[in-house]
């Protein structure tokens, strides 16, 4: 698998949290008995919970007839699917060729250093998850990062850290 996500304390705490599986009913209705719908089904599930909870696999399997092994096999094959909860905001640091040549490593290291976590980890307060991604396709603005759906380009280690801190400051106030 591409991104190794490391469990934080927050995840441990979340383990006992009950999730509302009935939220899945509309998407099951939509995709049930449609051929080739495994991926959209999982994508829709992740859209609801931010990740694919263990119980959701069972529930989906029971109501669509797709084997759990098949669902799990697909979910672990593709980088997009998460099996663990993530932080409120996801910081994707682009490590495409152009960004690599322009110093993406420095951006990653600076951000991780500032947040005191490792790649793939979530901050203890559950605010940020930082992960390295292959290419965001904004090569001419390299090096870039993407926070949620917003892309920030032409960064330096310092400016990247500033962006991250600013967002946190803004939301905390």
């Amino acid at each position: 698998m591409r991104i190794q996500r490391i469990e934080s304390k927050l995840v441990e705490e979340n383990k006992n949290e009950k999730i509302d599986l009935s939220l899945l009913d509309p998407i099951i209705q939509k995709y049930k008995n449609k051929k080739g719908s495994t991926i959209p089904l999982l994508q829709a599930t992740q859209q609801i919970y931010g990740y694919i909870p263990k119980d959701a696999f069972m529930y989906l399997s029971k109501h669509t007839g797709i084997k759990t092994s098949e669902l799990f096999g697909v979910a672990t094959f593709y980088a997009q699917f998460r099996l663990k909860p993530v932080g409120k905001h996801i910081v994707k640091v682009c490590h495409g060729t152009a960004c690599h040549v322009q110093g993406a490593n420095v951006i990653s290291e600076s951000i991780l250093e500032a947040l005191q976590i490792k790649d793939g980890e979530t901050t203890p307060d559950g605010f940020y998850t930082v992960e390295s991604v292959a290419c965001l396709g904004c090569c001419s603005l390299a090096p870039v990062i993407m926070i949620d759906d917003e892309v920030y380009g032409k960064l330096t280690g310092k400016s990247a850290v500033n962006i991250i801190k600013e967002i946190q400051l803004k939301e905390n106030n």
Partner: peptide, 25 residues
Amino acid sequence: VKEGAGAFVCGEETALMASVEGKRG
């Protein structure tokens, strides 16, 4: 439109079709 789910190998045509069919690519 069929959305991919993040796998470089799905650019290969037979893997791509497997992915469209909802399988591991």
